[in-house]
Design a protein around this nucleic acid. Structure first.
Lengths: 209, 209, 209, 209
DNA sequence: TATGAATGAGACTTCATTCAT
DNA sequence: GATGAATGAAGTCTCATTCAT
């Protein structure tokens, strides 16, 4: 009890700095995302980001060396999140599903991710233009994850096959669902279905090789 | 008579200027494309474009109301070019080919186009960021062309089917082949094959519905 | 007569742009000098210089790529002026004077220059720190001029002698009179005399080698 | 007794701290000197100085009220050092030397000093720009020392003579030898000789007044 | 006493576009 | 029509110094 109290106090006294920093970094990122979505990266100003995040501009520059770094951090935050989502499909629970169901869920998962993270689009549109290397980094992470999953779906795949197939799947799903997310709901729904069909038949054709 | 003579003279005097104008416009577009690819649209300056194109900045602004218009003009130039390429696949000579051959040629045609026109995607990536409204113009034209072709491959397709399938094909091929064009030759070749497989199986699955 | 009038009109219509530019450049330099003297180079702002010179800041940056360039231009303006002053001592009229009178006038000429150009000090103090190369360039110009004069005073000097002696004279006079110019009048006068004595005896000792 | 013990203990506890402080102050000064030489005073940042000196920035500001104070401390450190060097020339052993030998050694001593302390002039050049008031402190001390020496060389000098002559000698030697130290070895050697000649003849001329 | 995160005024500079010639 | 000097709003980023811990 006493210990807990002490540790609570200790925490109260020690953490603040770090905790406040983290909170500030996150507030900056959240605000930056909103502003990038609203006005685009080029039109956004670091001054406004700092003002809305209620941190002095100097503090912003203590965390991020320049404006680009904010975009990059945002990109990484999203990449990690999406990769986590995809990692789920490496679990036994998923791998035992019929392929059609597996693909259905995979594509739908990505769709849901884009729906729930409207910033992803805005951020990566900018990234593609400004820092293609960073975009690649994000996709590469996904491709690696997918490359690790494929042998579990069909042990006959060679490593080269896995890499190529994973590449195609990640890029195709990523691009199509991303574009779909900007379409009217009905058409978006249709595109999701088509993407599922596209990927399912593609995978099946590889299984029957 | 008098009119004809006058117009002849007028032509004599006007044409050279028009010819020079056209040449200048094209030089501006060529230079702008190179600079956009190299530095990105945002970093490029109208002054540099004019300087490299050896055109006074004031003259540049006589042809293009603003910087965006240059990008837009570039987009149109490309769209027409690629669409011409795709239109070929609406010809009888192509439509009689076996589907696998048809798809093979289609994808390869796009691959060749990107190889020969490295600026195409670079330009459209910028457009996506800078003028999302205009973006679709490029792919949309292709999608329409493809939407017109699909019924000829399978008359059972409803208009909605056609639109959705064309959308998926154009976007998937466009994106995958574009990315492939930035990969090492061996892997690029493999990606082209995979894209063919992806599209072929997708179309076949729709034929057997 | 008519011709003159025409040319006057022509001048009136042709020059303005160039004349206005030159006038502006000079106004910027004059203002910059005053502000550098008053506040020092580091404290001066391009904004203020432009404002006082009544030119838009953008115009200032059309003539000078950056703040340093203004200082450099100022330095060159002065270097040329001082060199002109020294060149006078290569004329026959001066060379026939007795050495003591020659040296007296030389040192006094430099003293007068510093007195009449209070900006020289302020500018070169900054230059010494910020762009030592430019300062050297100025002195080198003077040293060359002096190196060309010395053989006329004593044809026995070897080129190496000339260079070394010119170097010593330019640096010694330049530094001492410069420092003298910042001293109270009476002491300044004394320092000028001492500098004359210093240089005269130095030269005489070389003549009797 | 008790007091002594207490003071002993106190010393035991205080000294180490003082020793550490001194070491830190010196490390800061050493680092600052290096950075001032390399980048100039204006470009140097207190943060970098602290970082390279491995001292927290807050600690730096406990020793030096502001950036200028570091420069000032550096100046004092050097002034004392050079003045010690010059004081030697007030000793009997030196004063009995022939004037030519005396001057030879004096100039050579300064040359050696600059060679061994490349930072001296760099520091004082900065001071001239940044804090002209303080500047003189350095040379002024030398001038005073020299003013005290001159009567011993020639008792006929009036105090005003002494001050003027000392001023000229200190400034001339200081400036010429400093510049010489930045020249290629052969030319530097020549400049040292010329400076000796310059000063010797100057002094001799005063002796024969 | 020691620490170093936080601060924010303000500096420099860019560049799309215009319009007098 | 052609030209290119002129414009000035506004953006990014720095850094000496403080003060809460």
């Amino acid at each position: 009890m006493v210990e807990q109290a002490a540790s609570a106090i200790a925490r109260k006294w020690r953490k603040p700095k770090q905790a406040r920093s983290l909170e500030r970094v996150n507030r900056i990122l959240d605000v930056a995302e909103a502003i990038f979505i609203e006005q685009g990266y080029a039109a956004a100003t670091t001054k406004e980001i700092a003002a809305v995040a209620e941190v002095p501009i100097g503090t912003l520059y203590q965390f991020f060396p320049d404006k680009e770094a904010i975009l990059q951090a945002l990109a990484e935050r999203y990449s990690d999140l999406l990769d986590q989502q995809v990692q789920v499909f490496a679990t036994e629970a998923m791998l035992v599903l019929p392929l059609s169901e597996y693909v259905r869920r995979l594509v739908e998962g990505v769709d849901t991710f884009f729906l729930e993270n409207p910033g992803y689009r805005a951020v990566f549109v900018e990234i593609t233009t400004t820092m293609p290397e960073t975009e690649e980094a994000g996709d590469q992470q996904l491709i690696q994850t997918m490359t690790g999953i494929l042998p579990k779906l069909n042990s006959a795949f060679s490593p080269e096959d896995c890499e190529a197939i994973a590449f195609v799947l990640v890029k195709a799903i990523g691009n199509l669902i991303w574009i779909a997310s900007g379409q009217p709901p009905a058409f978006r729904q249709r595109l999701v279905q088509e993407t599922q069909k596209l990927c399912l038949n593609y995978l099946q054709s590889h299984f029957s090789d």
